[in-house]
Simulated scan of single mutants.
Amino acid sequence: MRLSAAINSFKSSNLISWKTTGKLQQTLAGCIELSGKTLHSGKVSKVKIWPGFAGEGRYFEFHSNLIPASIDFVRESLLCTTLCKDGYKIRTVEHLLSALEAKGIDNCRIQIQSLDSEDTEVEVPFFDGSANAWVEAIEQVGRKEALDRCGNNVEKLAPHLSEPFYVSRNDSFMAAFPASKVHISCGIDFPKVPAIGCQWFSSAALDDSYEKHIACSRTFCIYEEVEHMCSMGLIKGGSLDNAIVCSATKGWLNPPLRFPDEPCRHKVLDLIGDLSLFARSGSQGFPMARVISFKVSALSLSLGVSVRLNRVKLNKKILVN
């Protein structure tokens, strides 16, 4: 079973129920416009984010094609999360979606374009490798109550777990436990890269701590893996300005780090962006749960693992570092 089918089965199963948050759906109070170089293609792309109608959620517009920011449209890709519909692809969406989810922008239209009008594939600008640029832009324009096309406000829902959920492969795992609030704990382990080693970070991921402690954490990579990634046609736009790079023998090549555990915090940033894809009709995507992950990366990366949800065996895909 493909990743999207497995996650959709999880989303629609008895494991999840949708309950009110006691809040109304929100959108941007103005338009955001940013452009910049992308990570993998190295091209420049431009993004305009417009206020959206309540109940319509977050969605991309590319060459007049609308692609919802939903797990239904996730496709497998290397080193980023990719949405695809009708042959059009939006890559590296996780940082932007992480910021929108954490800052409570439930509904918006994300218009994106490449400088090459013939492209059927486009990436979200990468900036410094964190979500800082998006958070700052959201803060600048502010947010407001979203109204539907009839002028009515809409209640905001959130997914709640009815029982614990667990998926694993070897020493990599993700677990989620029912809770009244969002809480996330993330661990990584790079035993062959001593400067990173084993790290853990915990946070109430959707409160004010996101902006202070998560959004500014940058993408990281291992120096000894760079040549291999380049040979695969990836990270053409990568540089010491948009990622922190660590060598197994020499340590960090472009210090200082913003936090001692910045790599682990960035994994939390990515995870929030990926789990935001559970959102539907302007609801919250990240489940009201205590989520614990260890050595797990983006949902769009693939290694098959078997899980049992409500006595149904499904295939879910994760990347083991």
Rank of each mutant, 00 (worst) to 15 (best):
S283D: 13
P287N: 04
L269Q: 05
A289D: 01
S9D: 08
R91F: 10
F165Q: 00
K89E: 15
K316L: 05
V307I: 11
V305E: 11
L240F: 11
Y210P: 05
S231D: 15
C221M: 09
S180E: 15
T81P: 15
N8S: 12
L275D: 08
L78I: 01
K250H: 04
S12L: 07
D207K: 05
S130R: 07
C84S: 15
S293N: 03
I184V: 14
Q140K: 15
S12G: 04
V93M: 10
P255E: 15
R308T: 11
A176K: 01
Q25Y: 05
I318R: 01
P164G: 01
V193W: 08
L96E: 11
K192S: 13
D116M: 01
I112C: 13
L15R: 06
V268N: 05
K11R: 14
K181Q: 12
S302G: 06
C216P: 10
V226K: 04
F173Y: 15
V305R: 13
H183K: 07
L240N: 09
W18Y: 12
A131G: 13
I49T: 07
I244L: 07
V122N: 02
V124F: 10
P260C: 01
C108K: 02
S185W: 02
N132K: 08
K103S: 09
K295L: 05
G273Q: 05
I138H: 10
S293V: 14
K19M: 14
L309M: 06
V124Y: 05
P256H: 04
S12K: 03
K250Y: 05
G237M: 03
P263T: 11
N152Q: 11
S281N: 13
R311G: 06
L115F: 13
A279W: 03
L24I: 03
I90C: 06
S13E: 09
I292F: 12
N315C: 08
S45V: 08
M174D: 00
G30T: 04
A133Y: 01
T92D: 15
S98W: 01
P159N: 07
G52A: 02
C230L: 10
I7V: 12
A175V: 00
T20W: 04
A176V: 00
E262R: 04
K192Q: 11
K236W: 02
V193N: 09
K295C: 13
Q111C: 12
H228V: 02
V135R: 13
S41F: 02
D86F: 00
F294Y: 13
K19I: 11
S217G: 06
G36L: 01
G238W: 07
K267E: 08
T219F: 10
S35P: 06
A298R: 11
F190I: 02
I196P: 09
G55K: 00
N321A: 10
N107P: 12
G233L: 01
K48F: 10
K316R: 12
D189E: 14
D106A: 02
F53N: 09
L275Y: 14
A99S: 11
A131K: 06
L147W: 06
F220M: 05
I318K: 02
F127M: 14
D128T: 04
A6N: 12
C230Q: 15
A102R: 12
